[in-house]
Design a protein around this nucleic acid. Sequence first.
DNA 1: CCATCTTTGTGCACGCGTTCACAAAGACAT
DNA 2: ATGTCTTTGTGAACGCGTGCACAAAGATGG
Lengths: 264, 264
Amino acid sequence: MATGRTHRPATRSRGIPEATVARLPLYLRALTALSERSVPTVSSEELAAAAGVNSAKLRKDFSYLGSYGTRGVGYDVEYLVYQISRELGLTQDWPVVIVGIGNLGAALAGYGGFASRGFRVAALIDADPAMTGKPVAGIPVQHSDDLEKIISEDGVSIGVIATPAGVAQQVCDRLVAAGVTSILNFAPTVLSVPDGVDVRKVDLSIELQILAFHEQRKAGEEAGAESGPEAGTETGAPTAPPAARTGGSSRKGPDGDVPAVMPA
Amino acid sequence: MATGRTHRPATRSRGIPEATVARLPLYLRALTALSERSVPTVSSEELAAAAGVNSAKLRKDFSYLGSYGTRGVGYDVEYLVYQISRELGLTQDWPVVIVGIGNLGAALAGYGGFASRGFRVAALIDADPAMTGKPVAGIPVQHSDDLEKIISEDGVSIGVIATPAGVAQQVCDRLVAAGVTSILNFAPTVLSVPDGVDVRKVDLSIELQILAFHEQRKAGEEAGAESGPEAGTETGAPTAPPAARTGGSSRKGPDGDVPAVMPA
DNA sequence: CCATCTTTGTGCACGCGTTCACAAAGACAT
DNA sequence: ATGTCTTTGTGAACGCGTGCACAAAGATGG
């Protein structure tokens, strides 16, 4: 999970567990595919397989929404699509602003998965004056000076931050002050927000690091098979905990991200 | 969380809980920032604040790695950076291939956060012959015909899929067959992989849908304050569960993703 | 050397999420 | 109408993750 809520101790919204909410979009996607193939009904078993989850889990998830199935038959696809869409708030239009139109921001602006699910890119915002007015994915970039005006005029409540890490918190503060209450953060920083504001983060680097951990473990298991499972626990630690300071490097990554410092 | 492992019942790798592994990159980032400011030691309280977590949680996380702190003082920054890097497998170089060089793939290729953490983009691969040879972020795109050769020659074990959803499973199968055992999937599909292969997924659309859910709930709470908290449970459902089929549309999204069908 | 003070490391309890297993419900055939 | 068969909906048990609260450890000062 590249994700993780920030703050807010598992709000358990209207009795719907957070874990269930996170799976509803998965079910919706599978159901939409079935709908396009004109499949009238699905069993929990089939749908669970399509969504990549356990069937018992799926049934319990749906039970939080109500009793929308028919015993002995399954679930009506169209009806379920509607119910989940309504529950997720996808029956209304959500204007979204994207702040920071670099490589990633531009890619997000052109991402088809947004518009297809009721999310409308209301504006692209960047701090670089050279970008202002230039169309990206058919939408002209606006300058960040107008951020507050754009948010309030369009009634935007969801903001996407795709800026360098260094300015993410400032951008976040301005978005929140202007009325945004949900933020999707792509910058590799921890954002602090007041209560009532939801933050979800997507960090590509973190995902890769988690994969690397498991990858290393797999490799270690093979190699460790000959010398016992307890190998590799102390593979030459460089110095004792109170190591002498080496003086911090000042290299900065291209997007304002900080590189990992690897002693020795 | 934009994330979520696939299969594999919480492997609890070498006694290190999955939830802890997912937080290690967070700590590492905070520690790296401290290291650049030449801060010699941090308390669990300070570091926890910087990483956006609870200090008790942080201490428990570190306890799984060993006793690297000094009571009354805190943790040695440099030493901890090294220990976490080693635990995550970041002391070695991980070659990574990115398959599907569209908007997103190109953005990923240029993402600075990869190289700075020991991940090296070994190759960019795309099925479009017109892309072949064209440099993206300084790296020439190679044709997908050579996928197997590239993987085996470079010893690549981590693959990133940024293709349209329709071809993601095929690409995944080829990657796995060629020897890739960790996959980061950006395509909006459930990938099925054999045992021993890790898949992590990042789905931008899902993250927004989760935000929309909470956003709707917030809006509903305000409005519902006047008519009681039980309002909005049955806001005009369109038809009874056994609804007549309306015939599926066949529209496809621009990236092969399927649009949500909204009845009535 | 001793007292004090800070901060770690962890035992324990609690709550959420997952999974099993089964009773109830309805479709369908006779 | 009745029996059979399929599939849902959920009660209950279990395991993981989180957070509290405190004892142990070590630094620091006198």
